[in-house]
Design a binder for these strands. Structure first.
Length: 121
DNA sequence: CGATTGACGTACG
DNA sequence: TCGTACGCCAATC
């Protein structure tokens, strides 16, 4: 059992791109959502939005667990819902936080949208 | 080790 | 406005 590489502070500039994604994802306020591109852009790799998704791939493997349900694609669509183990797990989590989800899509996405570049700026 | 895929987004036609 | 192509980087086959 190797020592966990979970930084206690966000000042750690040595953390990898994946870990940075985890930090931001955990910073998303309850009842709010963001997009992969927004996080990627905040990290300075807007074109590497795919990597954000890959990072989320291990969101369930890190501690504390990353609220990946609050991260959706640019269309507000729950593209990663299938990775939660249950087809409606992501939708349920979002609705539980007050976010309305219809047809695997976040309603009023612009209203719930939380931009790290704008909020964390 | 080479080719393909992937939780996206932007650019071009 | 809609459809297709490309880029990005890592993991998987």
């Amino acid at each position: 059992m190797a020592k966990n590489k979970i930084p206690d502070s966000f000042d750690s500039a040595d953390i990898s791109f994946f870990e940075k994604v985890y930090q931001i994802a955990r910073l998303i306020p309850k009842g709010r959502v963001t997009s992969y591109g927004a996080i990627a852009k905040y990290l300075g790799t807007a074109k590497s939005s795919r990597m954000v998704g890959w990072a989320m791939n291990g969101a369930h493997n890190v501690k504390p667990k990353v609220p990946a349900q609050r991260v959706v694609n640019r269309n507000g669509l729950l593209t990663g819902k299938h990775h939660f183990g249950a087809p409606d797990a992501m939708k349920k989590l979002l609705e539980k936080e007050g976010i309305k989800v219809k047809d695997d899509k976040v309603q009023n996405f612009e209203k719930y949208f939380w931009d790290p570049v704008k909020e964390l700026l």
